[in-house]
Design a protein around this nucleic acid. Structure first.
Lengths: 213, 213, 213, 213
DNA sequence: GATGAATGAGATTTCATTCAT
DNA sequence: TATGAATGAAATCTCATTCAT
């Protein structure tokens, strides 16, 4: 029955789509979505412009496809968490992988897609889904990882804060590719660690947190 | 009698430039930089397309002008700090004004400009200058505002962290205009307050900050 | 009665027209008719663009005015011939003045005006008039200057030949400003001299003129 | 069977380029380079405006292409001289073909290109090359064709004179298309014949040539 | 008379998309 | 399936000309 049971074997159409997305990603990073022409993408993908339309109905669909692929990849990365013990360690690894190890080009692409999402409803929907999914998974991690002293911690609020910080770090990477993202990621991890340990809760409205004196 | 009629009276050319920037801002927020045509801007500014070119040499120059105007406004806002006592209060006011009170459209424009900055060197320079200026001012505030227990705090590092968080909050506002920015700003303020009070330093590499247990 | 009897005193409008033509000439030589804008001419004439239209109804009218002025100047130059003896000497002087001494810019302007004349009927008419006038005067000179041995010479035909050669010399000056026009003008003069002396008639259909052997 | 169908078969791209140049030539003659729009050329070539840009990168490139094609055609015409005897006859045929038989429109186009050459360096280079090539070939012809009595003749100087006269004839054809070019060409041939025969050298500085008496 | 800001039609060029082969 | 020539709508920018001041 099963002709090719190997999971790595994609059907040719899927392989073509992937090739196009790879090419488009390189082009968009290099010149931005609007400045990249379909000819550019076709040349980079080593096919004819007309052929692109067999796999994607429009240029917009390519960005959408790109975003969706990223979304799926990150989601898979998050779902592959070790079931076992060191949840914070797993979180730290995820954060470092996505915010530090990923090349700065990804950050540029990210900005490009966000900017597109501010008016392309399809892109906006993908971004929203993405955010909801990651947010949910982070909240799950935080809920399970918080220590006894952090019973009052709101995992959803912390997840939202982490996402916002992550976005900010992406912006900085895109705009200042030479500045190392390490310190900011360290700070993010420090904040999460403190919150999970119950030492300091940035999302709490506790007045003690807001006093300077 | 009075030779100088009113200090608010701008020379007509300056008034025109302002009118064009206002129009462009509305258009860019509505449709993005690349999808906005010069005709759109002209119509919004109630002029003929040709006349735009008397005041700005190109479409790019309009975005640059817009960015520069914003930069100047924010910088002026930051420099008008009360000389006196409540530095943290002043910082809080600034943060709330720029991150909460400002309409969500500004955030959209911001994303647009960042995305442009990844390719347009002029835009990149404006963003870099802006970041450097604000960063410097924030560091100054933090240096003066830190309490005795926070002697080890690095004001520059904290300023960088705050900027990254602010950028992240902007991104979230642009992408999810319905989600209130308040909680994230509260968290940002809480973190700064704790750092200034010496209660918790997210930028310190102190191992205690990074331990989960 | 006569307020200002001096011939050098132009009425102010005439002076303005002259100033505009001077400016236009400089501009056209520099950049060609089509690449020169009315703003360019106005700036060069040190007046406002709108003011140009008080003196010339259109841009085309300026080229026409320029051509007409040139025509008048050359015609005047030709009519100021010494009534007396040395007609060939006078012709030689005219030829050298117009083909050698005149700056190469004039040749460029000439080409510009010819090219314009191929489709602007007003310009074409001016060029035709010009040609007819000069041709007539040259023929008159040649008729009076031919020696006894040149009784069979056709002064009109020689004039047409001279005009064509003069045009060719202008073209060469415009295209190769560095090549000295002297030799070509010398040849032109030599041909005319020979024809007037009856030594060699290039316009005659005499078979002897056409044999190689 | 026959592998190569016909030598006249051009590859389709070359055919397209030729079609565009033909169309452009008709348009430029009709309205001049600057007044002809790309839409005009496209309509004349029966293509869409955008398609022109697949074959020529700009409007300027079309004029350049036109000039180059003309140059190549004329150069080829000149190089196809009969190896054998009647060199002057060959020269006469060339002169008549290019100066009389060619339609007057070509002369208009020529003026157009010269006028462009005064500003457009690419065009200027083409004209210069053309002139150098033709000049060289003419000098070669004259060197071989001069009779024993014309040993002192400078072939290069004569070639330059002939080129200038030819240019002048072109100008006259463009400006007065109704005046037949025959007489002027006859005169040109008579002058060359006389020079080659040693009867009269217009390029020589011999005083006898310049005396009127 | 003179200014120069404003107009608006139009030019060149680009590019997403289609379709005959 | 794949190609790549072709389309044609649209975008940016220019400039001759006008007109209120």
């Amino acid at each position: 029955m099963s002709a090719v049971p190997l999971p790595a074997r994609l059907d040719p159409a899927e392989e073509r789509r992937g090739r196009i997305l790879d090419a488009a990603e390189r082009c968009f990073v290099r010149g931005g979505f609007h400045r990249t022409t379909m000819q550019d993408v076709a040349a980079e993908a080593q096919m004819s412009p007309g052929n692109l339309y067999r796999y994607f109905p429009s240029k917009d669909a390519i960005v959408a496809g790109l975003a969706e692929r990223d979304r799926a990849a990150v989601a898979e990365d998050f779902s592959a968490l070790p079931a076992g013990a060191d949840l914070f360690g797993a979180f730290e690894a995820l954060a470092r992988r996505h915010l530090c190890d990923t090349p700065a080009d990804k950050a540029v692409l990210c900005l490009e897609m966000w900017s597109e999402a501010t008016r392309n409803p399809a892109m906006a929907a993908i971004c929203r889904d993405f955010e909801r999914e990651i947010s949910g998974r982070l909240a799950g991690i935080f809920r399970d990882a918080r220590g006894p002293a952090a019973a009052g911690l709101d995992p959803e609020a912390l997840a939202r804060l982490v996402l916002a910080m992550a976005d900010g770090i992406m912006v900085r990477r895109a705009l200042a590719p030479d500045a190392p993202p390490g310190p900011a990621v360290d700070a993010l991890l420090a904040i999460v660690a403190a919150a999970l340990a119950g030492r300091f809760d940035p999302t709490g409205a506790a007045p003690s947190n807001r006093d300077t004196a």
